[in-house]
Design a protein around this nucleic acid. Structure first.
Length: 664
RNA sequence: GCCCGCGUAGCUCAGGGGUAGAGCGCCUCCUUGGUAAGGAGGAGGUCAUGAGUUCAAAUCUCAUCGCGGGCUCCA
């Protein structure tokens, strides 16, 4: 019998008959890991543990051992195998309960924090949420039967025969499109399930212990709106019940922080049917926060040599044709309106307007760089189904800026932008920033504007800027805008979710389209470089992220009401009003609660509204000119004079502190 | 836009072919209480909108509007 030489990636080796399986080999090489392994990587390819060595090793050729590496739990690969196998289990349960169900695809999801896997199905009847627990129960029953996942390698025609016999037209289509001469299919023994699938899978259903079905939604076959709509069943799976539990907790926490709920509870903003979807009303509490955010930005923009501009919300359609938006972005713009035979369109971006200011007079190299900044409100015709609270809207304000500079200046300008972004994020408590450099792809079908040389120069400038600050960044090929490369910034919030916010984009396109010029040292006309840059991105969206990041408990400098003065009895109402007036005179936002409630109720009320400081005043305080200070997360922090409190609060506000503790 | 689900008081929600319900909030009165809910009373709803079925519709049907979950991540 022929034998195969096998070797663990970094160590032990053994010799086994070629009829042995990968699992057998692993057992010889490392007993512990063999036990844990979900699948294995053999000569670089992921395979099942049940795969026979003869598939890999040629006739016991000792010169080149077969390299084996277990796929272990707690790794990305391991999780993928686990979830993919759980998706199969889901399909098996659905087929069991609803014979005649047609299967679509059922992959594992690793990068979507909301879900772990899904399976698309067309069931004989419409599934509802009530079906999920029933399906999940059946999954558990099948899992408990310790059924092996079995793989068969068969010819394509054989596979087509099997699936058309089972009346699985979608699977047949997949096999036709993606299958080679031989294809692999997977069974779960003891269930009616069979799937066209590359694998690998866990060896046995008993490995699936911690999973949960989450939701049901619609999804098009192949994501194409012209294709039939299927039902997508989402679920997630982990290696241990504890991990699943922790994940579900985190999900609840995210729900608790939902900006739409907090927005209503804290009376921050609303969206009203009668006025239109995706349009935001900033209520007084939300407006206070926005004002503080914008004031901060203006302060920073000033320091960094930006100039403020204001531009219209609408412009002639011809302008948008010149900029190219009408042609390439027109579907996302509101339809034109006509006045005296001239068509106008609402602006979806601010760039052409800032260009208008640049072009309003001749520019010399001595004038550059020009940094025009504007809180520019734009309107985009987003599809109704994509709208979501503050995160996806139809009208929003960009903390926009456009930099016009010479090619020599651009590197420095980009450095300035990156510095700016990082500083701003830090102020709001986003310490972890993920940088992404999106560059031109080599062979994608996209049309890239601008010459090779220009791209090389631009990409190098962006990369150098990131390199020079020693940060890690991901370089993403082919993700650049058609008009130039860009850096995107993602922040991690308080519960570990990533949000894409700011962006710095190089633009080869608009300076050409608008024929921008400056007069150089040589007295000749040159084309300036243009950089688009936003920090928050959309102020609405950033506000939504902040609400969820802080869970509604804003730092003092942002809090709509910073101080609640709470008199214990009516006797001290007047004293409370005097304290409040004193603090207001110092610029603090203060409320007094004189309603006829006990102190406990007044505290609860302020606490629920997440007011940072409560000043409890009774006879003792009124006599001594003090206040008993309660901080929203620490509780009672003792009495102090009104003067001391005022100084402390002001210091917290002025320093834009993130926690309400004064460093002494 | 498309699929599924949902729309009852300011909010969260129960109910369901034949006088419209609860808790919280709001208003009034009593209570003046020292660190997360004192007590009593009251106001408040064309049951999203429109049409249909019915002796009778908040309830059943359809349409419209809105909201929510989604809409190709190696078979």
């Amino acid at each position: 019998m022929s034998e195969v030489q096998v070797q663990l990636k970094d160590g032990a080796s053994a010799r086994l008959p070629s009829s042995a399986t990968v699992a057998d080999a692993l057992k010889q090489l490392d007993r512990d890991k063999a036990k844990q392994a979900l699948a294995a990587r053999v000569n670089g390819d992921e395979v099942d543990l049940a795969a026979r060595l003869e598939r890999f090793g040629a006739n016991g050729d000792a010169a080149k051992p077969v390299e084996i590496e277990p796929v272990l739990p707690e790794t990305r690969e391991g999780l993928e195998v686990l979830r993919h196998s759980t998706a199969h289990l889901l399909a098996a349960a659905v087929l069991d309960l609803f014979p005649g169900t047609k299967l679509g695809i059922g992959p594992a999801l690793l990068d979507d924090p909301r879900y772990g896997f899904f399976y698309d199905v067309i069931a004989p009847r419409q599934l509802t949420d009530e079906d999920l627990p029933v399906i999940e129960k059946r999954m558990r029953e099948i899992a408990k039967r310790n059924m092996p996942y079995r793989r068969d390698d068969i010819t394509k025609s054989e596979a087509l025969r099997i699936f058309s016999e089972r009346d699985e037209p979608l699977k047949c289509k997949l096999i036709d499109d993606k299958g080679g001469d031989t294809v692999s299919v997977y069974y779960i023994d003891g269930s009616p399930f069979i799937d066209f699938c590359l694998g690998p899978h866990v060896p046995n259903t008993n490995r699936l212990r911690a999973f949960k079905l989450l939701s049901l939604s619609g999804a098009y076959w192949l994501g194409d709106a012209t294709q039939p709509q299927m039902q997508r069943i989402y679920g997630t799976a982990f290696f241990t019940p504890e991990e699943l539990e922790a994940w579900l907790k985190q999900r609840e926490e995210a729900e608790r922080r939902d900006h739409r709920r907090l927005g209503r509870e804290l009376d921050l903003f609303s969206i009203q049917d009668a006025y239109g979807q995706g349009l935001i009303f900033w209520h007084p509490n939300g407006a206070v926060i926005r004002k503080a955010m914008e004031d901060y930005l203006y302060e920073e923009l000033n320091k960094r040599g930006y100039q403020f501009v204001f531009t219209p919300h609408i412009a002639k359609r011809d302008l948008w044709i010149t900029s190219g938006h009408d042609q390439s972005y027109g579907d996302s713009m509101f339809s034109p309106v006509k006045l005296e035979e001239v068509e106008f369109r609402l602006k979806p971006m601010n760039c052409p307007f800032h260009i208008g200011i640049y072009k309003s007079q001749q520019r010399s190299y001595r004038d550059l760089p020009k940094r025009y900044a504007e809180m520019g409100t734009v309107y985009r015709a987003e599809l109704s189904g994509t709208l979501h609270g503050l995160m996806r809207v139809r009208g929003f304000t960009v903390d926009d800026a456009h930099l016009f500079c010479t090619p020599e200046q651009v590197r420095q300008e980009i450095d300035g932008c990156v510095d700016f972004v990082v500083d701003v994020f830090k102020t709001f408590g986003f310490e972890k920033v993920k940088f992404e450099l999106s560059v031109k792809g080599s062979d994608t079908g996209k049309q890239w504007l601008g010459g090779e040389e220009g791209w090389a120069h631009a990409e190098a400038a962006l990369a150098e800027s990131l390199d020079s600050r020693g940060v890690d960044y991901e370089r993403i090929e082919g993700e650049a805008a058609f008009y130039g490369p860009k850096i995107d910034f993602k922040v991690e919030d308080a519960i570990g979710r990533l949000w894409q916010l700011g962006t710095v984009q190089w633009d080869f396109n608009l300076p050409d389209r608008f024929a921008l010029e400056y007069v150089g040292e040589d007295g000749k006309a040159h084309r300036p470089v243009m950089v688009h840059r936003a920090l928050f991105g959309s102020i609405e969206r950033f506000f939504g992220v902040l609400i969820e990041h802080y869970a509604g408990a804003f730092p003092v400098w942002l809090a709509p009401v910073q101080v609640a003065v709470l008199p214990i009895t009516d006797r001290v109402n007047e004293y409370a009003e005097r304290v409040a007036a004193d603090l207001r005179a110092a610029g603090l936002r203060v409320e007094v609660s004189t309603r006829g409630e006990k102190i406990g109720a007044k505290i609860r009320d302020a606490q629920v509204r997440k007011i940072p400081f409560m000043l409890v005043c009774g006879d003792r305080e009124a006599e001594s000119g003090q206040v008993a200070v309660r901080e929203r997360s620490r509780g009672d922090i003792g009495a102090m004079s009104v003067e001391d409190f005022k100084r402390m609060a002001q210091r917290l506000v002025d320093s834009r502190a993130l926690v309400n503790v004064v460093e002494s």
